[in-house]
Amino acid sequence: MRTLLDFEKPIAELEAKLDDMQRLADENNVDVRDAVRSLTENILNLRKETFLNLTRWQRVQLSRHPDRPYTLDYIEKICQEFHELHGDRTVRDDPAIVGGFADIDGTTVMLIGQQKGRKTKERQYRNFGMPNPEGYRKALRLMKLAEKFNKPIVTLIDTPGAFPGLEAEERGQAEAIARNLREMCVLKVPVICIIIGEGASGGALGIAIGDRVLMLENSWYSVISPENCSTILWRSWDYKEQAAEALKPTATDMLNNKLIDGIIEEPLGGAHLDWDDMSNRLKERILSEIAELEKVSPQDRIDARIEKFCSMGFFEEA
């Protein structure tokens, strides 16, 4: 069963009507080609109209669509081989972040990503994509491994935040994220970071310092989720739509503010409607960015990476 967001429902209703029409026509041997053509056109138009005019909150909803592909779905679609590597070598393995060496059309990359679960049990197992410190430390360990063997790094970001739990604090959630920020700045290999769903705050940034930071069209990336922002600034959960508008967290917003380097477009209606198409777009972009970045020397890449992040900010200087 497909899950439908509110603004997807009118389209789904038309699609159901189309199905009915075709079935009836088949059963009764009636020629409905004209009607089908016009209805198909209507559906396409409605879809365009809906998805070209999405509000920021609607995009946030799309980024969390339960049918949206997650890290392991992309890995399955774009990698010929994937050797998952586990553990931070200190405490345990964190299932909220997966990573390993991957073969993408003959190119070896270190692929690391936050992983959400799809069914209740799996969601719990993946901690809803909220990593503990071990996850960030595993990610850094794998990145250093990639550096050692001179392989580019690709990270896929999809998290509602770093886990705010008791043990996470005891084991140094803040330190783990902070260390990643600093160490990722000086990795000698190309680093490409892609927000594929939710990019919530430090929990996202902790694996998102790269030469290229890209966002899928219907993802969001900001310092806080609209809901939490609403709770803090409006003291109520109900202002999440306003909060989403105020935070300007969409891919277009972030690109306009020069806080990311590019956008990967999704199939019309969202990544969840066509995993193959979306995966292809993702793969092509990863390969072309790697090819570009490999033309640059490691030191120049590091310098450019550092200066890029250091140029981010908005202030007045009298």
Binding site: A178, L181, R182, E183, C185, V186, S201, G202, L205, I209, Y221, S222, V223, I224, C229, I232, L233, A246, L247, K248, P249, D253, M254, N257, L259, R305, I306, F309, C310, M312, G313, F314
Partner: peptide
């Protein structure tokens, strides 16, 4: 981080860490 600067605030974490590197 200061919420009123949203994405800009977030990137100050990256900026300061980059200089510290």
């Amino acid at each position: 981080a200061r919420m009123m600067e949203a994405g800009f605030s977030l990137m100050q974490m990256a900026k300061t860490s980059a200089r510290l590197a």
